[in-house]
Structure formats: C-alpha cells, structure tokens
Design a binder for these strands. Structure first.
Lengths: 200, 200, 200, 200
DNA sequence: AATGAATGAGGTTTCATTCAT
DNA sequence: TATGAATGAAACCTCATTCAT
C-alpha cells in the first residue's frame, strides 16, 4: 500500500529541511565553493542521490538558502516599522541585527562571504543579486525612517547608520572573542540619538 | 657570460611579481577556488610549468599574496605613526584606508573574503591567521593613539573608529555605485573629532 | 469479492501492454540508452515501482519488445504463405513491409538500430540474436517462394529481393520527406516480376 | 629545455589519431551511447584527463569521427566523377561502396547506427545532420550521372540504385557470414546496365 | 629557465534498482 | 497492487600537480 501523498509531502519537507540545515553548516565550515555535495549529503546523513532528488544541484541549494535569508530580512523590517517612533524603529533594527550576529556570527559571515564572491555560476549570481536588491530596498525604508526624524540629510544619516552597524557586525563575526558588542552599540546609538538604549 | 647571482635574484623577483599580479587579478575575477593555475599562468603569459618553478602550488601563491598584504598593512601603520598628532595619525589611517578601497575595491573585498573563509588548506589557513593577527596588532597601535588623545576608554573608541571605517569600506566595496564615500568620511570624522578633514 | 485468476491475468496483460507501448515510444524518442525507467513509467502513467512489478528491469523491457517484434514478423510470413501464388506472396511481403515502414518509420529504425548494436547487457544481446535468427528463418521461407517460382538461383533472387526491400525501408526511415516509396516499390516489383502492382 | 612547438604539434597529432582509432573501435563494439570515455581512454592507453586535453568530450570525439567520414565520402565521389562514362562512374561507386563494407562492415554499420539514433545531444545531432546532408548532396550528383545516361526518370533510377546498394551493404554488415556480396552485385549491376561488371 | 603533455584524484550528476509503507 | 523515497555504482568532467624534453 503506498504512502498517502500528504505523508510523502511531509517526508519531503522534513528531508529538505534536514538538507538545508546540513548545507548551511557545511557551507559555513568550508565555504560554499570548497564544500562538496558529498560533504553536505554526509552531514545530512543521506546519499548524494537523494540530495539530487530534492535539489537540482549545489547552486539550487544555495538559492534556497538565500531565499530563506531574504525572507528573514524582510520579516525584520516588517517588524521594525510596527514600532511607534523612528528612534524605536532604528533601535529595533540595531538590536535585532546585533542580537542576530551575536547568536549566529557565522551565518552573518557566510552570507556576506557569498555576497562578496565573484560568481561564475549564473544562477547563484542571480540569487545573490536578489539578496543585494533586498538589502537595497530595506535601506530605502530606513532612509524614510531618518526622514521622519527630521534629519537634514536622511540618506547620508541612514548610510552612516548602516555602515556603523555592518562594521560592528562584520568585526564581531570575524573576531567574536572579547568583543564589547553591547558597549559599542550603546556608544553608537548614543552618538546617533543622544540617548543610551537600555534594552537587551 | 653567465649572469651574476644578484642579477639572477632580481630577475627572479620580477618574474614572481609578474605572477603575483596575474594571480590577484584572476583570483579577484573568479575567486580563489574557481581560478585555475592555468588561468593564472596564461594571464602572466607563462606556462604552468614555469609557474611551479616560482611557487610551490596554488596555496603557496595565495600565501605570498597574503604576506604582501600584511606588508602593506604594516607599512601604512608605520607611515601613520610618523605624523605629529594623534588626530593627524587617525586621519591618515582613515584617508589611506578609504583611498585604498576607492581605488581597488575588489582587492579589499577579496582579502576580506579570504579572511572570513579560508577555503583552502591548512597552510593558507595559517597565513590567513597571520593576516588577522597583524590586523589585531595594528588595532592595538590604534588604541595607543586614542590613549594619547586622552580618551577615557581608548579601547572602545578605537574599536568604534575601526568598525566605522570597515563598515564604510565593506559597503563601498559591495555597492560602489553612487556611494558618497567622502561625505560619509567627513561625517564620521567630524563626529569623532568635532572637525572636518580638509585633506585629499 | 476477489477477482478470478483469469480476470487477474487479463488485467495484468493489459497493464504490461500499456507499459510496452509507453516503452517503445520513449525508446524511439530518446534511444534505449538515454531513456530512463522513470520516463517510461511516467509515459505509462504509473510509478517506477509498479513497472518493476511487471518487468524485471530495463533490459527485460527491451527483451519483451523484441519478442513482440519477433511475433509480428512471424505473423506476417504466416499471412503471406496463405496467398495462392508465389508472386502474390512476395507482393504481400513487400506491401506489408513498406506499409509498415511508411506508417511507423521510427519503429523500423529503432529495431534495426537495436539489432545492429546490442548496447545493453548479455540478456538483451541474446534476444537480439533471436530477432536476427527469426529474420534468417523468414529468409529461408522466402527462398522457398522463389524456388516455387522456378528461379534458377532462388537463394540469390531472394537475397536480392530482401536487400532491395530493406534498402528502401532503411532509406525511407532515414529520409522520410519526399521519398517516392510507392513509385520505387513499383519500379522494383516490375523489374522482379515484369508486372506493376496496383494495390495500395 | 622545452620541446619545440612543431614537436608538440606532432605529438598532439599522433595522440589525437591514437584516440580517434581507439574511439571508433570502442564505439563499434559497444555503441556510442554505451561506450564510456573511460573505455576509450583505456583502449587508447591514456588517462581520461589527457583525452579531455584533446577532445572536449564524447560528443566532440564523435564529431571528429563524423567529419572524417564526410571527407571520405566526398573523396569517393570526387574519384568517381573522373571516370569517363556514366556507367563506369556508377560501377566505381558500387565497387567502392561494396569493397568498403566488405573490408570494414562494422564501420559502415556504426555510421548508420549513429545516423538512425534519436539524438538528445545538440552537437552530435548537428554533425549527424552534416553527414546526412553530405549523403544527400552526393545523391544529387548521382542523379546527374543517371541523367547523363539519358534515363527518363533519373531521380527515381538513382534512388533505386542507392537503395539497392545500401540494402546490400546493410544486410552484409549485419550478416557478414556466407553473404554472396559479389554475385549479388553482379546481379544488380546487370539488371541496371544489361551488363555484368568484370572488375574487382 | 621553460614548455605543455600526461596523470589521477576528486567533484558533479544521473539513474537502475530496491524497499518500507 | 502501488508509491516514490532512498541508495550507490558509474558516468562525465576539471584541474592541481608532475615530468620528460
């Protein structure tokens, strides 16, 4: 008696998730290019063949990871703009970004790594561009926040804010030991808002 | 009439430099992993075999590039500390860093990429660590500069300065189009030093 | 209410026939080697697993197709010898062969292809040999027909007849466009029998 | 001291020829699709890698074989039309074709095999088409010969001639044992020309 | 010093076949 | 009877590296 289609669908979803988790682990450890499909399959505890049942290749695997990443990014911004004041919105963005890099520095590092890599592979290139585009879109929203704060040059302020944030994230993810992330955040926010955030 | 040993050494150095230049070009275009030795040799206008005469392998090539990079970094700091005041020293550091990323964004990008994911073997990993170590050493020197400025928390200020700088460099090298690098630098420096740099 | 054994057998036969039809279609389109079991199963509208319920593998599938082909060939000759005169018998053979290649040039092509290159394993090779043997047996029967016509060298005449026929079939199946199959047949038959066939 | 470019060129030509010979042997034995690159390399006594140094893949290998085949075909027709009378020209064509199939039945079989195969591979498809095209072009030249003989329907006569010839070649190459090739040829030529060829 | 022919390990991908359900 | 998830062997291809010349 065959499995029901729903049961099969469930199995597929679990298997794909399992592979995605394995893939990001391996990609983080070895880098996307140095990682082999076999590495990923072994980590996921399955055969290479099965991996190809779910993903059409290494590029497809990366594509799906990037799409997930994009969703996360979108989600954060959506949450941020529900806050009531511009300052709170920016603080939320900063908090979230730093919390994220603190909890998973390697993931932040990995996506930046991917984004800074010259890409021979058409498909990967395309999806990396999507990620860049989404970050650009998010940046525009952040400019709006600064505009609502009445800044004279919201574009520049927003850029300043983002570079400061990414600078921290980058350095934290590269040198996570003894990095005074919270102090630095407070320092930065106080410079921006003459105000010291007391939240997490 | 055989060449003198010194002459031979000089020729050898020129040949190696030629290959190094070709290598970084190719690595930047394709990425270290995707670049082939043959690509590098062709770019340098020599045969694969001859390349192996100068470098013991692909990893060795990358190693030497990293060592060159370290030398550059050391050199910049050495220049910086010849300036007479701490502010001038920091301004020199910032100017130099930004000028550098502006002229060769891909080189900055490439080394950061390499540094955050030593995709190659053990030996490259070791030399990447050297690069990190050098950057850490340089950071300590920068802390001293801030200390000489009489800052209460020179460590934090220095970190703040570096993160801001690297944030800019990172974002500029990723999105070079329409990036107001100089404006942003002025904005940053003015916040740091209540002062707007009028240099280059 | 369980089905009777006969009913089961009949259903099984229908299922196998369905798969056979799908298989020859796919084999003709992609070639035996390039065709996948999954292609065949999809074309038949069933799952891979079920296909293995009816056929023990890809080679077995081809084997059964060859056996069907042999049956067809036997059948044609059986029909032919019911005709009353040798000439009618030969005309029937020629008509049938050419009608067949005209309607299904690809099938003729496929079996000739298979026969001239048993690309598969031992077992398929064996069954290809059966097909060759059957064609040899049929050839002998055709020699008898020529003998009954009183030909001095029936063997040679029969061979001449067959080569002419297969030459036409081969060329028609390879270049089906604008091929004057019927004219050519008339030309050939008239040379053989001083007679022009007026049938379809 | 490096080899001179000419020496290298010579080595390359020898190596390519060696591989071509190995390839056609293996393709004949196993069929193009069932043959693996490794089979060919082993037969040629070289590594897979070297094979890829000379040919960009299996399809490229076949391409070159087909191009050689086309050259041969062109050459035969060029020779034929140097003969003084149409009959001599046709006799030359027939003799040459049959001599060829007699000496290398497998090669004739192989190229027909290739030509009758549905081809997924774009490049192979293209070059097979070239072969077909060349055969079509040659056919036109043959029609001219029949026209010069004053035939009422040279097109049909030429087609008849070709189908008869290919029929023989096909059957001989499939059943080489005890095949009365020469007798059959004489039979055919005498029917065409009321004349029995006394040559080779 | 200089070449590129040659190797072989390792990577990606496909697919016939098995098997739990 | 029926499904498709799962396997693994084998195919194609690339490229760092070696070596005869």
């Amino acid at each position: 008696m065959p499995r029901s289609p729903e049961e099969n669908g469930r199995i597929r979803q679990l298997a794909k998730e399992n592979i995605r988790v394995a893939a990001i682990e391996v990609f983080i450890e070895k880098g996307y290019h140095a990682a082999s499909i076999d590495d990923v399959a072994k980590r996921a505890g399955i055969s290479k063949g099965l991996l190809y049942n779910y993903f059409s290749g290494k590029a497809d695997l990366l594509k799906e990871l990037i799409l997930s990443r994009i969703e996360e990014i979108v989600h954060v911004m959506e949450e941020a703009i529900t806050k009531s004041t511009p300052v709170e919105q920016l603080v939320y963005i900063a908090d979230h970004a730093l919390l994220n890099v603190q909890q998973k520095p390697n993931i932040y590092r990995f996506y930046w790594h991917i984004q800074t890599h010259p890409e021979a592979d058409e498909i990967v290139s395309t999806y990396c561009q999507l990620l860049k585009d989404e970050m650009a879109r998010q940046f525009k929203l952040q400019v709006d926040i600064f505009r609502r704060m009445g800044e004279a040059n919201p574009q520049l302020q927003s850029l300043h804010f983002s570079t400061a944030l990414h600078g921290m994230m980058l350095m934290y993810s590269t040198y996570p030991e003894n990095f005074p992330l919270l102090e630095l955040k407070d320092e930065m926010l106080s410079r921006f808002f003459k105000y010291i955030g007391e939240e997490s």
